[in-house]
Design a protein around this nucleic acid. Structure first.
Length: 559
RNA sequence: AGGGCUGUAGCCAAGCGGUAAGGCAUCUGGUUUUGAUCCAGUGUACCGCAGGUUCGAAUCCUGCCAGCCCUGCCA
């Protein structure tokens, strides 16, 4: 019990929130840690949510507390069951377990109502009949104080009666709201008598039609935290001002005016280069058919990244690498890509695929294709062997052949030059056939039969290695090569963000894979050697369709 | 005089008065049947700027500059 820290050897990087928690525990402000991940079910989760999920659930794990999954469902006009289901799936896929059943803010609607009544009784809330435009005018501006609503001094008794009528549906939508009575001159705009409840005759996905008044975020969120016993309520920077309202509400309710009530802390949201993170923009991409859906592999959504081939481990590692702070930052894709490569390099079986095939004929090879046992992972023998073939007709990638080697650094196939075929023999380019346009149609080679699994006996050096597939056994396959969705680092800054979409963010290629991939599983990662990490598309059915997750690191083509 | 925040290497990010961690990227060697991996090495960071306090400041104080957020009956 002496340490509130780790349960295992995993050391997570420190951040200011951990420092706060450590202090709180040391000072006995709390004796436990409880967090929550509180998505609004109005869209799919993206990698920015993954950062928050890893933070909240990670803290709960490390401090042996727990973390609730709570749907912040206070606005029935924007929310949908489709999203609550998708969100649960994504959180679970990331590998986190929420505490007990999923929670909903709507579970607490009765309690919210009772707390609203308490505020009214204390003369701290009133029913206001100013319409939306009037309320805006009364609010003042950033530099001028607002004016008190004419309904501000209604008696608690009268307000109670009015609020009851609101609940009973006796007023029209927009006719009135319940407001907190705070300070119309506050420099925090959110403290200028904020609305607590509004009228919405709307069907709610959890509570059906029992309510026609719905609480606002600022009222519902702090109360949900307090009701659940959350200790550290973590959110993003734009809620910094709202913290004053969060504190005000809890401070004025008898149940929660205690030192161990929840406290809110804000960290900066994730911004990733060459993509967008706001739900509005993501919705726009989907609705305008700029992508195939929420799970388009180019989307920064968790479902998109999953379909792209990202693993839960890689996303969690990414979250750890970028850390938590309060700086407005723009994170580079390189960190995300480094995280997947690190994971996939360790776990992905190796295979060979030719994405842009050109035929090779081995002139001195006769007979049936030869079976060869190749390692599934050259650095991990425990992963076993796989069967590949070598024969008279092969495919290699067009990019791996030039009639004439351009310089001494060139390590691929050329006429009169030797190169090793990965996992097989050394071959030498002899001559080519071309079509009318001058494109190479067939490369004729000879192979050295003494070089399977060994270097040439005469000691000659053959530096290059290229990959191939044997033609008669190869499986036709489609490859989807993905690139960044936008052409600029920060699409939000563009005048029209649709004009800055990368038209080459998806390039489809037709080629071949090894026969062993016949029944590869969707979403399972493979390394196609020298090409990158790919996974079978989860919607491709019986056709071999592979999505490129990320190419291999390339320190050579840039030179 | 509106308020709330933030400014540490190309990008993330530790540091909380004792003289700048780490990751990514970069570069250089070595190993290698993936120009990958792996291994070793590699950074003069005016710690936003200017003053001040101190034996000593990225860390404390003052002023300035820059960026982000706040006037939904959205979250």
């Amino acid at each position: 019990m002496s340490q509130h820290n780790k349960t295992d050897a995993v050391e997570r990087p420190v951040n200011f929130i951990r420092n706060i928690i450590n202090d709180d525990l040391a000072n006995h402000k709390y004796e436990r840690v409880q967090t929550r991940f509180p998505p609004e079910p109005n869209g799919y989760l993206h990698i920015g949510h993954a950062k928050s999920i890893c933070l909240n659930f990670g803290l709960a794990e490390d401090y042996q507390g727990f973390c609730n999954l709570r749907f912040d469902d206070t606005n029935p006009s924007k929310e949908d069951l489709e999203y609550v289901e998708a969100i649960q799936k994504d959180v679970a896929w990331l590998g986190f377990e929420w505490h007990g059943e999923p929670k909903y803010s709507s579970n607490y609607f009765d309690q919210f109502y009772a707390y609203a009544v308490e505020l009214i009784e204390k003369g701290l809330a009133y029913v206001c009949f100013l319409n939306a435009e009037e309320a805006r005018a009364y609010r003042g501006s950033l530099t001028e104080p607002g004016k008190d609503s004419p309904y501000r001094n209604t008696s608690p008794e009268e307000n109670l009666a009015l609020f009851t009528k609101m609940k009973q549906g006796e007023f029209k939508e927009g006719e009135c709201v319940l407001r907190a009575k705070i300070d119309m001159a506050s420099s925090f705009m959110c403290l200028r008598d904020p609305a607590l409840y509004r009228i919405r005759f709307e069907h709610h996905h959890q509570t059906g039609d029992v309510w026609c008044i719905y609480p606002m975020y600022d009222f519902a969120h702090c109360l949900s935290d307090a009701i659940e016993g959350v200790t550290h309520s973590l959110c993003t920077l734009e809620f910094q001002d709202n913290r004053r309202l969060y504190d005000w509400v809890l401070a004025h309710l008898n149940d929660f005016n205690r030192p161990d009530r929840p406290h809110q802390y804000e960290f900066s949201r994730l911004n990733l280069e060459y993509t967008v993170m706001s739900k509005r923009k993501l919705h726009q991409l989907v609705d305008d058919h700029l992508v195939s859906g929420w799970d388009d592999p180019r989307m920064p959504t968790i479902s998109g990244l999953r379909r792209r081939g990202y693993t839960p481990a890689s996303l969690r590692d990414f979250a750890e690498r970028i850390g938590i702070s309060k700086v407005d930052s723009m994170t580079g894709m390189d960190i995300l890509e480094a995280a997947v490569r690190d994971d996939l390099n360790k776990v992905a079986p190796r295979s060979m695929a030719v994405l842009d095939p050109v035929k090779v004929v081995i002139e001195n090879f006769e007979g049936e294709p030869l079976s060869i046992q190749a390692p599934v992972h050259p650095q991990n023998e425990a992963m076993g062997k796989r069967e590949i073939f070598f024969g008279r007709e092969l495919y290699i990638d067009r990019a791996d052949f030039l009639e004439e080697a351009p310089n001494g650094k060139y390590q691929r196939l050329a006429l009169n030059k030797e190169v090793r075929l990965r996992n097989a023999f050394i071959v030498k380019g002899e001559r080519v056939d071309k079509d009318a346009e001058g494109n190479v149609t067939t490369i004729y080679c000879t192979y050295d039969p003494e070089t399977l699994g060994k270097k040439p006996a005469d000691g000659r050096k053959v530096k290059g290695v290229i990959h191939f597939v044997e033609a008669s056994k190869a499986l036709p396959a489609v490859f989807r090569i993905y690139d960044r969705l936008f052409t600029v680092e920060n699409p939000v800054k563009a005048d029209n963000f649709e004009s800055v979409i990368n038209t080459e963010s998806l390039v489809v290629k037709q080629g071949f894979v090894e026969p062993g991939l016949d029944n590869s599983d969707p979403e399972k990662a493979y390394q196609f050697e020298r090409e990158g990490y790919f996974c079978r598309d989860n919607q491709s059915g019986n056709i071999q369709v592979y999505n490129r997750t990320v190419p291999l690191r390339d320190t050579w083509s840039k030179k």
